[in-house]
Simulated assay, not measured.
Amino acid sequence: MSTLEIDRVRKSYGIHEVLKEVSISIGAGDFLVLLGPSGCGKSTLLNMIAGLDTITGGEIRIAGKVVNNLSPKDRDIAMVFQSYALYPTMTVRQNIEFGMKIRGVTPADRDKAVKTAADLLQMSHLLDRKPAQLSGGQRQRVAMGRAIVRQPKLFLFDEPLSNLDAKLRVDMRTEIKRLHARLRTTIVYVTHDQIEAMTLATRVAVMKDGVVQQLDEPQAVYDRPANVYVAKFVGSPSMNIIPGVLEVQGSTVSAVVGIAHRQPARISGIPVSLDAARKFAGKKMLVGIRPENFSIATGHQGSALAVDIDVVEPTGPDTLVVFNCGGVEVTARLPPKQASAGSEAILSVDTSKVVIFDADTETRID
């Protein structure tokens, strides 16, 4: 296990700046997920940690040691690629032990390491097969086994599940989670899939255009997104962002939002400090509400909204309903058969989970 410190790291290709003073620090045994869309700089950052790409500015430290100018082989890292990168003419055993053989590890130690990795990944019965005889998930296990036997300070995963079908992705997420729990090694994992980030990470760095938008525990990123971008990127369906106006009455903070064809509604008891609320009182805000924070109300209680349902989308365990609020489409996640298209619904809001953003900067207000 090892710590990783990324200190004001920059990367430019000519005048094009890909990474803009990225700073991330994780402890030994942490599972860091770099999350973001294509082109946000997450794979570039991973390649710089691995030593596969040069750094324009800043420092990268592994176990407290600056590695900016070290070659990949001297960084004591192991990388699992999206493409598996297995030797097609070698057996699984030979693929796993190849790196150890190059480094001069004795046959006895190689056999022991291969057996340990194969048992850990439940692939002992595959050791004599070649990659062409394996499924995608089995090939990914081999790539992981090859990394495990190195016993590195740092594991790097570059979108390792993107080539797998939906069922295998779920299975392999479980395998990777189990692997981390057993080895307690430090992992940096790149993905654009927010489900992978939420299920695997101990820390998530959400990236956009070469900038870390938020670095926090997965649940904190989900519950308290730093800005509108994070709120919309993390979660499926994403957080509803509804235009509104902030009000303060005594010690109660409320947001007033428009409802299509109806009088504006007041959502009261929003968890924003009174100092911040008074600063923004009367101004246009953006109200963030997760779909699951709506529920069918038993009556017109405090923060209930009377809405007209436009669309109903049954998903099996629950139903997504779409209505207009504040001039935008809003999605609520409700139990099955509690609403129908074209009908009225009275929805209550769990105000303890409501997040308010500044309409100008789109950053969260606390």
Rank of each mutant, 00 (worst) to 15 (best):
4 L>D: 05
6 I>S: 10
9 V>H: 06
11 K>A: 13
14 G>K: 02
15 I>E: 15
16 H>F: 00
20 K>V: 10
25 S>T: 14
27 G>L: 08
38 S>Y: 11
43 S>C: 04
45 L>T: 05
52 L>M: 07
53 D>W: 15
61 R>V: 14
63 A>Q: 12
65 K>N: 09
66 V>Q: 12
70 L>G: 01
75 R>E: 01
77 I>L: 14
79 M>R: 00
80 V>Y: 09
81 F>W: 01
82 Q>T: 11
86 L>H: 04
87 Y>F: 12
89 T>I: 11
94 Q>T: 00
97 E>M: 02
99 G>R: 00
100 M>E: 09
100 M>G: 06
100 M>L: 15
103 R>A: 01
104 G>M: 13
105 V>F: 00
122 Q>I: 11
122 Q>L: 08
132 A>P: 10
134 L>V: 04
134 L>D: 09
135 S>T: 13
135 S>Y: 05
140 Q>D: 10
155 F>H: 05
160 P>C: 07
161 L>S: 03
167 K>V: 13
167 K>E: 11
169 R>V: 01
170 V>E: 01
170 V>I: 05
171 D>G: 08
174 T>N: 07
176 I>G: 07
177 K>V: 09
178 R>G: 02
181 A>R: 14
182 R>S: 15
184 R>E: 08
189 Y>G: 14
194 Q>I: 09
197 A>Q: 05
197 A>N: 08
204 V>W: 00
211 V>E: 10
213 Q>I: 11
217 E>Q: 15
217 E>A: 15
226 A>D: 12
227 N>A: 06
229 Y>V: 06
231 A>F: 02
232 K>D: 09
235 G>Q: 11
239 M>E: 12
239 M>V: 05
249 Q>N: 15
252 T>R: 13
253 V>K: 09
259 I>F: 09
263 Q>P: 00
265 A>Y: 08
266 R>P: 00
266 R>D: 00
269 G>Q: 10
271 P>C: 11
275 D>Y: 01
277 A>K: 14
277 A>T: 13
278 R>W: 09
279 K>H: 13
287 V>A: 01
287 V>D: 01
289 I>F: 12
291 P>R: 07
292 E>L: 00
292 E>G: 07
293 N>D: 15
299 G>Q: 11
300 H>W: 14
302 G>L: 05
304 A>G: 12
308 D>W: 04
309 I>C: 08
315 T>E: 07
317 P>C: 04
320 L>I: 08
322 V>D: 07
331 T>Q: 12
334 L>I: 04
335 P>A: 04
339 A>M: 04
341 A>C: 07
343 S>Q: 10
344 E>Y: 06
346 I>E: 14
350 D>H: 02
350 D>W: 00
350 D>M: 02
351 T>D: 01
352 S>N: 10
353 K>C: 14
356 I>C: 12
356 I>W: 06
358 D>P: 11
359 A>M: 00
359 A>C: 00
361 T>P: 06
366 D>T: 13
